[in-house]
Write a protein that binds this DNA or RNA. Structure first.
Length: 195
DNA sequence: TAGAGGATTGAT
DNA sequence: TCAATCCTCTAC
């Protein structure tokens, strides 16, 4: 399976990239535990709207990797508990990113079950905080290239435009009218999509 | 340097 | 509906 080229990430339209990431495979090999799955749900964030950490090009210690050239991971801690995994896109200095919200587990199911301390694979990767835990992603992955040996994205299944659901993003009420943008994308009728 | 709050989750 | 939990950012 071939990994995505850097040119996939450096395009300027983050919404297009968020949709095209559906069906791709996110794989990690952390602590010699290869795990991964098919991306079934994403959200787009752009520096030109208020839902984004880098709104108005505001660079902080936390979000500085978003200003890198597309193709690196942006991982940060949310609510003091959850690591959230983003794919940085666009050119250097243009801070766009795609938040990965849900996966369909494919690789290394036993490792994911072990990390989640559960017996069954039911909904173990259906949420941004859960999938990072299942894949072993934490803030040490912040800024890691998406073609590195511990973390990468490769070609998966093809998802036609007709099978993509678009909806508004959640949890960003503070973003005002930008919270109404239909920038949350998921594969229609996929059981692994978050609720 | 103190204080408020957050791109979530799971239990009640 | 709410607590867990701690890093990040802002204001002083």
């Amino acid at each position: 399976m071939s990994r995505l080229a850097e040119s996939f990430y450096t395009r300027t339209n983050v919404v297009t990239i968020a949709k095209e990431l559906l069906g791709k495979r996110l794989i990690t090999n952390i602590n010699n535990k290869p795990t991964g799955g098919i991306i079934v749900e994403t959200e787009a964030y752009s520096f030109c709207e208020r839902g984004c950490h880098a709104y108005q090009n505001k660079m902080t210690n936390r979000n500085k990797v978003m200003f890198n050239e597309g193709g690196v991971a942006y991982v940060y801690l949310c609510y003091g508990i959850h690591n959230l995994f983003n794919v940085v896109t666009n050119k250097s200095g243009l801070a766009d990113a795609v938040l990965i919200i849900a996966l369909e587990p494919v690789e290394g199911l036993e490792w994911m079950l072990d990390r989640m301390k559960v017996q069954h694979a039911k909904r173990i990767t259906s949420g941004p905080g859960k999938l990072t835990k299942a894949l072993g992603i934490d803030r040490t992955c912040d800024g890691v290239m998406l073609n590195s040996s511990q973390l990468w994205i490769e070609e998966g299944v093809r998802v036609s435009e007709k099978k993509i659901d678009a909806s508004t993003r959640i949890g960003i009420d503070y973003a005002g009218e930008d919270a109404q943008l239909p920038w949350r994308f998921s594969i229609k009728d996929n059981e692994w999509v978050s609720k």
